[in-house]
């Protein structure tokens, strides 16, 4: 560096324009991602009946008030029921499949089956909704909790599958060899060695399935009936008519479920190990 330049130019030179531009873009994209959620959280404390800026008379009362609205409580319970069903079905079908396919990744047919299992995520949810609506109406299941859970499983099971494949791949098969060598058959080795050792992965997959089901609304929109309507579907109709702190409070409860789920997953397997995209 030459020292005979005027100080102003020197400062300009040392000023990192790349970093500034980079950070500006980063701020904008984080804003786009997070601000809708932040604003929902903020507005839930507004004291006014209808939302308008600035949010004044800050209060917690909506959080208690909405608990007394039977419609919302009912939809919340419906969401919990479908999410539990989804979790159970997803885990039961996807875990053994992930176990079988994780060890044969190189093979042709295994690769094809793995990508077949992830096809439903590629489909627009509207299409899954329509297809299942037609099929389940035919066999008389439309509108049941089970119907919505099936729809959600089409979304959740592939993601559980991807997560569990990653978990099983990290599992050293030497332990199964040891178990078999000591006299265990395939099922005993799976139940007594594999499952306990990948327990944390399974817990994460459970939360994943559960969270996905509590948040999904397009498939549920097609498959619900008045008695099984889930909270996101009810929200979908409600927010078009009103902007109110009560709705915000309900939304914050939902965001809380997601945040808690992410926290648990992070504790158990690390947030960066959630199976998404091409990684698995």
């Amino acid at each position: 560096m030459s020292n005979n330049k005027p100080p102003a130019i020197k400062i300009l030179r040392h000023f990192d324009w790349h970093r500034l531009t980079f950070n500006f873009f980063l701020t904008v994209v984080l804003f786009i991602l997070l601000v809708p959620i932040l604003i929902v959280v903020l507005s839930s404390f507004s004291g006014k009946e209808h939302l308008s800026w600035p949010f004044t008379d800050l209060t917690f009362r909506w959080y208690f008030e909405v608990l007394n609205r039977p419609l919302w409580v009912k939809t919340f319970i419906n969401s919990l029921i479908t999410a539990s069903l989804t979790t159970v079905i997803s885990l039961l079908v996807a875990t053994p499949a992930a176990y079988a396919l994780s060890k044969h990744k190189g093979k042709g047919e295994a690769g094809f089956i793995s990508s077949f299992i992830t096809w439903p995520i590629m489909m627009p949810p509207v299409i899954i909704g329509i297809a299942l609506l037609i099929f389940l109406s035919r066999i008389g299941l439309r509108g049941s909790y089970f119907a919505i859970a099936i729809g959600h499983t089409l979304w959740a099971a592939p993601l559980v599958f991807i997560t569990m494949v990653a978990v099983f791949e990290r599992f050293n098969p030497i332990y199964i060899m040891a178990a078999k060598d000591l006299g265990a058959n395939d099922i005993q080795a799976f139940m007594k060695v594999t499952i306990p050792m990948v327990k944390s992965g399974i817990i994460s997959a459970m939360f994943l399935a559960f969270v996905i089901s509590t948040q999904e609304f397009i498939i549920a929109l097609f498959l619900h009936s008045p008695s099984t309507i889930t909270l996101p579907v009810e929200l979908y109709t409600a927010i078009r008519d009103e902007l109110s702190p009560g709705i915000s409070a309900i939304s914050v409860y939902m965001i809380g479920i997601v945040a808690a789920g992410l926290f648990v997953i992070d504790r158990v397997i690390g947030i960066e190990n959630i199976g998404f995209s091409g990684k698995g």
């Binding site: 959620i37 929902v40 996905i212 947030i271």
Partner: peptide, 15 residues
């Protein structure tokens, strides 16, 4: 990234 990803789309649109 994951919080908005998993949070109900309706809630984000509401925001």
């Amino acid at each position: 990234i994951l919080l908005p990803l998993f949070t109900n789309l309706v809630i984000r649109l509401y925001g």
